[in-house]
Every structure is written in C-alpha cells, then in structure tokens.
Deep mutational scan, measured.
Amino acid sequence: GTVHVGDKTYHFPTPDAAKKFAQEIAKKLNLQVTVKNGTWQVH
C-alpha cells in the first residue's frame, strides 16, 4: 500500500499496514484521510 502525507510518500508491504499508518498519522496530526485506488492520502 502507498500513503501520501503532504509531499512525502510511504510504501507498505500490505494494504492493511498502509491503512493503519494513514489512520494513525491522521489522528495524530488531526487531518483527514481519503483513499483512492488503494492509495491513501492524509491531508
């Protein structure tokens, strides 16, 4: 899975790992999470 946070991109071996990371970052930074075609965006 891929997660975009601002101008950074993180790659994870599984979709679940990407989802978990995106949700944790969003919670920590009080941001929104959207997913499109398996790519997570934190914004």
Rank of each mutant, 00 (worst) to 15 (best):
A22Q: 00
N30H: 10
K36H: 15
P13C: 06
V35S: 09
E24M: 13
V35Y: 15
Q32N: 10
T9E: 08
Q23L: 15
L31Q: 07
A18H: 00
V42D: 02
D7L: 12
V33F: 09
V33T: 06
A22M: 02
P15F: 14
G38L: 05
T9V: 14
N30Q: 08
T2R: 09
F12M: 03
T2N: 05
V3F: 01
F21H: 02
K27R: 12
D7G: 13
H11Y: 14
T9G: 03
L29Q: 05
T14R: 04
A18F: 02
H11G: 04
D7R: 13
Q23H: 15
Y10L: 05
K27N: 12
G6T: 04
A26I: 02
K28H: 09
K8H: 10
D16S: 11
L31V: 14
A17N: 04
Q32C: 09
Q23D: 11
A26V: 03
K28R: 13
W40G: 02
V35Q: 13
G38R: 05
H4Y: 11
K28L: 12
G6M: 12
P13H: 11
G1V: 08
K27V: 10
A17M: 12
T2C: 04
W40Q: 02
W40N: 03
V42W: 02
T34A: 06
P13M: 09
N30I: 03
K27L: 13
Q23G: 06
V5Q: 02
T14Y: 05
K20S: 11
K27D: 12
Q41S: 11
P15R: 14
T39A: 15
Q23P: 00
D7W: 10
H11E: 07
N30E: 06
V33A: 10
G6I: 09
A22L: 02
H43V: 13
G1S: 12
V5P: 00
Q32M: 12
G1K: 10
V33C: 06
H11D: 06
L31G: 14
I25D: 00
N30G: 15
T34H: 06
N37H: 06
V35M: 14
L29V: 03
V33H: 03
A18D: 00
A18T: 02
Q41M: 14
V35F: 15
N37L: 05
E24T: 11
E24G: 08
T2E: 08
G6S: 05
Q41V: 15
P15I: 10
A22K: 00
V33Q: 02
V3R: 00
I25L: 13
A18S: 03
L29C: 03
V3H: 01
G38N: 14
V3L: 02
P13G: 09
K19G: 10
Q41T: 15
A18L: 01
K19H: 10
H43N: 10
P13Q: 11
K27Q: 13
T9I: 14
E24R: 11
G6P: 02
A18R: 00
T14L: 04
T34P: 01
V35R: 07
Q41G: 05
G6E: 06
K20G: 06
V42G: 03
K28A: 12
G6V: 06
A17I: 08
K27A: 14
T2L: 09
D16L: 10
P15D: 13
T2P: 02
T39N: 11
F21K: 02
A22I: 03
V5W: 15
L29P: 02
Q41A: 08
Q23I: 15
F12V: 01
V42S: 03
Q32P: 10
N37W: 04
K36S: 14
I25E: 05
L31P: 01
K8F: 10
F12A: 01
